Lab assay of single mutants.
Amino acid sequence: MTEYKLVVVGAGGVGKSALTIQLIQNHFVDEYDPTIEDSYRKQVVIDGETCLLDILDTAGQEEYSAMRDQYMRTGEGFLCVFAINNTKSFEDIHHYREQIKRVKDSEDVPMVLVGNKCDLPSRTVDTKQAQDLARSYGIPFIETSAKTRQGVDDAFYTLVREIRKHKEKMSKDGKKKKKKSKTKCVIM
């Protein structure tokens, strides 16, 4: 069974824990209790493949930012979460993405942009803004509501699919490099 290491990042209060708990335990946590770091595991079937999701729910508070490099190193894919009623959390996505790329030393890291709290009427981040940002990053965008469960499975499952595509691409690139290195030079 394939294991996928997913990391949920975003500013404090955007609903990272609520999304994760909704996926794992099928219930909505409405009281806000700032996370330092929590880890969850769940076995699911995605596109006919049974897999184990190892999900790291991270601290959004700035005082825990020193811990970010460590979990970013171990993560295979990242859910970059903002709240649709919090423009600052949307603007912060850029910083999370840049930090992930720096730590992973790669421009090509599996990510999904997630606009959470889409059940709320007080939207300050337009869907088109988020779609445009995701398009500019070359990553999928999904709106979710941890409260109603809308888009929750889709967000995590899409990230797994992005990781699969990335692994497939990397193995193809690896095979191309191996083929090239088999060419021999004969000096007579």
Rank of each mutant, 00 (worst) to 15 (best):
Val125Leu: 06
Val125Gly: 10
Val125Glu: 09
Val125Tyr: 08
Val125Ile: 08
Val125Ala: 08
Val125Cys: 06
Val125Asp: 13
Val125Trp: 06
Val125Ser: 12
Asp126Gly: 07
Asp126Glu: 10
Asp126Trp: 02
Asp126Cys: 10
Asp126Val: 06
Asp126Thr: 06
Asp126Ile: 05
Asp126Ala: 05
Asp126Phe: 09
Asp126Gln: 06
Thr127Val: 08
Thr127Ile: 10
Thr127Gly: 08
Thr127Met: 08
Thr127Lys: 08
Thr127His: 07
Thr127Leu: 09
Thr127Ser: 11
Thr127Asp: 11
Thr127Trp: 08
Thr127Ala: 08
Lys128Phe: 06
Lys128Met: 08
Lys128Trp: 05
Lys128Pro: 06
Lys128Gln: 09
Lys128Glu: 11
Lys128Asp: 09
Lys128Arg: 07
Lys128Ile: 07
Lys128Asn: 09
Lys128Cys: 09
Lys128Thr: 11
Gln129Cys: 07
Gln129Trp: 12
Gln129Met: 05
Gln129Phe: 11
Gln129Asp: 09
Ala130Leu: 14
Ala130Pro: 03
Ala130Gln: 06
Ala130Tyr: 14
Ala130Phe: 14
Ala130Ser: 05
Ala130Trp: 13
Ala130Lys: 01
Ala130Ile: 15
Ala130Thr: 04
Ala130Cys: 11
Gln131Glu: 13
Gln131Cys: 09
Gln131Tyr: 10
Gln131Asp: 09
Gln131Gly: 08
Gln131Pro: 01
Gln131Leu: 08
Gln131Asn: 11
Gln131Ala: 11
Gln131Phe: 04
Asp132Ile: 04
Asp132Pro: 01
Asp132Arg: 04
Asp132Gly: 05
Asp132Met: 04
Asp132Phe: 03
Asp132Lys: 07
Asp132Val: 03
Asp132Trp: 02
Asp132Ala: 07
Asp132Ser: 05
Asp132Leu: 03
Leu133Phe: 10
Leu133Lys: 03
Leu133His: 02
Leu133Met: 12
Leu133Cys: 03
Leu133Glu: 04
Leu133Val: 06
Leu133Ile: 08
Leu133Ser: 03
Ala134Gly: 02
Ala134Asp: 01
Ala134Arg: 02
Ala134Met: 01
Ala134Val: 02
Arg135Ala: 13
Arg135Gly: 06
Arg135Pro: 01
Arg135Leu: 08
Ser136Leu: 09
Ser136His: 11
Ser136Trp: 02
Ser136Gln: 14
Ser136Lys: 14
Ser136Asp: 14
Ser136Val: 05
Ser136Gly: 09
Tyr137Met: 14
Tyr137Ile: 14
Tyr137Leu: 15
Tyr137Ala: 07
Tyr137Asp: 03
Tyr137Phe: 12
Tyr137Glu: 05
Tyr137Arg: 02
Tyr137Val: 08
Tyr137Asn: 06
Gly138Asp: 14
Gly138Leu: 00
Gly138Trp: 00
Gly138Met: 01
Gly138Tyr: 00
Gly138Ser: 01
Ile139Cys: 10
Ile139Asp: 01
Ile139Tyr: 04
Ile139Ser: 03
Pro140Thr: 02
Phe141Arg: 00
Phe141Gly: 00
Ile142Gln: 11
Ile142Pro: 00
Glu143Lys: 03
Glu143Val: 00
Glu143Ile: 02
Thr144Phe: 15
Thr144Gln: 15
Thr144His: 07
Thr144Leu: 15
Ser145Pro: 00
Ser145Trp: 06
Ser145Glu: 14
Ser145Cys: 06
Ala146Phe: 05
Ala146Leu: 14
Ala146Gly: 15
Lys147Glu: 13
Arg149Lys: 13
Arg149Tyr: 11
Arg149Asp: 07
Arg149Cys: 13
Arg149Gly: 15
Gln150Ala: 11
Gly151Met: 06
Gly151Ser: 15
Gly151Phe: 11
Val152Asp: 04
Val152Ile: 13
Val152Thr: 05
Val152Gln: 04
Val152Lys: 04
Val152Met: 14
Asp153Leu: 13
Asp153Val: 13
Asp153Asn: 11
Asp153Ser: 13
Asp153Pro: 08
Asp153Trp: 09
Asp153Lys: 13
Asp153Ala: 14
Asp153Glu: 13
Asp153Thr: 12
Asp154His: 09
Asp154Glu: 13
Asp154Ser: 09
Asp154Thr: 10
Asp154Gly: 07
Asp154Cys: 07
Asp154Val: 05
Asp154Gln: 12
Asp154Lys: 10
Ala155Trp: 08
Ala155Gly: 03
Ala155Ile: 11
Ala155Tyr: 01
Ala155Pro: 09
Ala155Thr: 03
Ala155Arg: 00
Ala155Met: 09
Ala155His: 01
Phe156Thr: 07
Phe156Asn: 00
Phe156Gly: 01
Phe156Gln: 02
Phe156Pro: 00
Phe156Ala: 11
Phe156Tyr: 04
Phe156Lys: 01
Phe156Val: 15
Tyr157Leu: 10
Tyr157Cys: 14
Tyr157Ser: 14
Tyr157Gln: 14
Tyr157Phe: 12
Tyr157Ala: 15
Tyr157Asp: 12
Tyr157Gly: 14
Tyr157Trp: 10
Tyr157Met: 13
Tyr157Asn: 12
Tyr157Glu: 15
Tyr157Ile: 13
Thr158Asn: 07
Thr158Glu: 13
Thr158Ser: 07
Thr158Tyr: 08
Thr158Ala: 06
Thr158Ile: 08
Thr158Pro: 01
Thr158Trp: 08
Leu159Lys: 00
Leu159Asp: 00
Leu159Ala: 05
Leu159His: 00
Leu159Arg: 00
Leu159Pro: 00
Leu159Gly: 00
Leu159Asn: 00
Leu159Trp: 00
Leu159Glu: 00
Leu159Phe: 00
Leu159Thr: 01
Val160Gly: 01
Val160Trp: 02
Val160His: 02
Val160Arg: 02
Val160Gln: 02
Val160Pro: 00
Val160Asp: 02
Arg161Pro: 00
Arg161Gly: 08
Arg161Cys: 01
Glu162Ser: 03
Glu162Thr: 05
Glu162Phe: 02
Glu162Leu: 04
Glu162Cys: 03
Glu162Gln: 09
Glu162Lys: 05
Glu162Val: 01
Glu162Met: 04
Glu162Ile: 03
Ile163Cys: 08
Ile163Gly: 00
Ile163Ala: 06
Arg164Gly: 11
Arg164Glu: 13
Arg164Trp: 12
Arg164Leu: 14
Arg164Met: 13
Arg164Cys: 13
Lys165Thr: 06
Lys165Ser: 10
Lys165Met: 11
Lys165Arg: 04
Lys165Phe: 02
Lys165Gly: 03
Lys165Leu: 06
Lys165His: 03
Lys165Glu: 08
Lys165Val: 03
His166Ala: 06
His166Trp: 09
His166Phe: 12
His166Asn: 13
His166Leu: 09
His166Arg: 12
His166Lys: 12
His166Cys: 07
His166Gly: 10
His166Ser: 09
His166Pro: 02
His166Glu: 08
Lys167Gln: 09
Lys167Leu: 02
Lys167Asp: 12
Lys167Val: 03
Lys167Asn: 09
Lys167Ser: 08
Lys167Thr: 04
Lys167Pro: 01
Lys167Cys: 04
Glu168Arg: 03
Glu168Tyr: 14
Glu168Asp: 08
Glu168Leu: 05
Glu168Gly: 08
Glu168Ile: 08
Lys169Val: 10
Lys169Arg: 09
Lys169His: 04
Lys169Tyr: 10
Lys169Ser: 11
Lys169Trp: 07
Lys169Leu: 11
Lys169Asp: 09
Lys169Ile: 11
Lys169Cys: 11
Met170Glu: 14
Met170Cys: 09
Lys172Met: 14
Lys172Gly: 13
Lys172Ile: 14
Lys172Trp: 14
Lys172Tyr: 13
Lys172Asn: 15
Asp173Pro: 13
Asp173Leu: 05
Asp173Thr: 08
Asp173Ala: 08
Gly174Ala: 12
Gly174Arg: 01
Gly174Trp: 00
Lys175Phe: 05
Lys175Glu: 15
Lys175Ala: 10
Lys175Val: 03
Lys175Gly: 13
Lys175Trp: 02
Lys175Met: 04
Lys176Thr: 07
Lys176Tyr: 12
Lys176Cys: 10
Lys176Asp: 10
Lys176Trp: 02
Lys176Arg: 03
Lys176Gly: 10
Lys176Phe: 06
Lys177Arg: 03
Lys177Gly: 06
Lys177Ser: 10
Lys178Ser: 14
Lys178His: 05
Lys178Asp: 15
Lys178Cys: 09
Lys178Trp: 05
Lys178Ile: 09
Lys178Phe: 11
Lys180Leu: 14
Lys180Gly: 10
Ser181Gly: 12
Ser181His: 03
Ser181Phe: 00
Ser181Val: 07
Ser181Ala: 08
Lys182Phe: 03
Lys182Leu: 03
Lys182Gly: 13
Thr183Phe: 00
Thr183Tyr: 05
Lys184Trp: 00
Lys184Gly: 14
Lys184Ala: 09
Cys185Asn: 15
Cys185Arg: 15
Cys185Ala: 15
Cys185Pro: 14
Val186Phe: 06
Val186Thr: 15
Val186Cys: 03
Ile187Ser: 15
Ile187Ala: 15
Ile187Cys: 15
Ile187Trp: 05
Ile187His: 14
Met188Gly: 13
Met188Arg: 10
Met188Thr: 15
Met188Asn: 14
Met188Asp: 10
Met188Trp: 12
Met188His: 14
